[in-house]
Design a protein around this nucleic acid. Structure first.
Lengths: 120, 120, 120, 120
DNA sequence: GTGGTCTAGACCACC
DNA sequence: GTGGTCTAGACCACA
């Protein structure tokens, strides 16, 4: 995995873990890899992974059992979907509309364009 | 104008000026306000505006005449539209698609949603 | 190091670093000194070094890893040689020819003159 | 005539006039065009031309007769050739040698390259 | 520790 | 008047 320079690395790692949650990489309330293992996996300083895990914890996606590790929250996947839906509706859509107007692209043009992706 | 804390101010100023270009605030190859005037307008240090103008110059939107000021490039508006269209197609659309998949939203659902904005 | 008053300091620093690259001061993709250290070395404000590093980055000679520092690009040395060769052929040679004509110096005269330098 | 952005305009105008002197545009001690006419010719502020003329005067190429205009100095052409020869030997040649070394170009390579220009 | 942004204020060359 | 460079010093996010 190589990182996008625009976003902080710790956020990108958090998002990568979120993606795994969405893809059901782990079972209900299962333990996720340790900070150290994840740091090795991403070739990154453990402090950085720590920040990612803190972020996930703030969003109620994982929880910490001291001395044992981090575990998925009971409703992790559903919480995550809700979070993303919220941000999608509040941010992505209005920005999309703004871009369309500035570039003088009609909604129907956009739809045509989107169809190219429909089967991927 | 108040600034978004997420992005550097000098970028936001550059974008604000880009928006003015799109809205035809200035005529073909017209002189735009001086660094100092823009600094006063945005209540910001002239150095910061300097960075914004440098950015615009790198993108071939404005050009400098020594001792006189900055002027719109002949094709500023068109160049800008091309730049934005390119970034829109390369970034916004794929991200949109990714979000749709993760959230299990169909394209038709999205279209329905978009229609709410159609007349704004 | 003392600076030439004709050229901006930040450009002269960038050129000094380029010279070090040409002289293989650093290994392949090695980290170069921090902005602050370089500022101390040249007895200059860190902001000034920042501008030099930005310039080098634009020319694909160095790259930044967030929170860590600046690193030589994989092909830094070769890119640099290409850049300089290009500018040499496009600028230096035609100017040389122009001078020769204006001064009524023949190419063979020039060659004789050049030989004085051959063993330095 | 369009100006190179690297050099001050007043210097470029002075050089353009020097070139005309070399090309015998004017006769011995002839009057050269007025500041105003030259300003119109180059589409430039008269103050700028004033600075060019001052520069030429400092180099003993032209002289001013108050209320009448600027005139070529008796030995203008020869003075100019001497000036240029001096600067050529002191600046151009050593810089050329430096570039050759940095780029690892041998003198013979250079000569080959120069021959392309020999008949222009 | 690293780089990045911003301010305040000075000084300069150029037009 | 214009832009351009530089300093000093502050504050911040990131690793």
């Amino acid at each position: 995995m190589d990182f996008n320079k625009e976003k902080p690395i710790f956020i990108q790692i958090a998002e990568a873990i979120e993606d795994k949650i969405l893809q059901n990489e782990w079972n209900h309330e299962e333990r996720i890899p340790s900070v150290r293992d994840t740091a090795v996996l991403f070739k990154v300083n453990p402090n950085t992974v720590m920040r990612s895990y803190n972020l996930l914890q703030e969003n109620n996606l994982i929880d910490n059992k001291r001395g044992i590790g981090y575990f998925l929250m009971p409703d992790a996947r559903q919480n995550l979907i809700n979070l993303r839906k919220k941000s999608f509706l509040e941010n992505a859509i209005p920005e999309l509309i703004k871009s369309l107007k500035q570039l003088d692209i009609s909604v129907s043009e956009l739809i045509t364009n989107l169809k190219n992706y429909e089967n991927q």
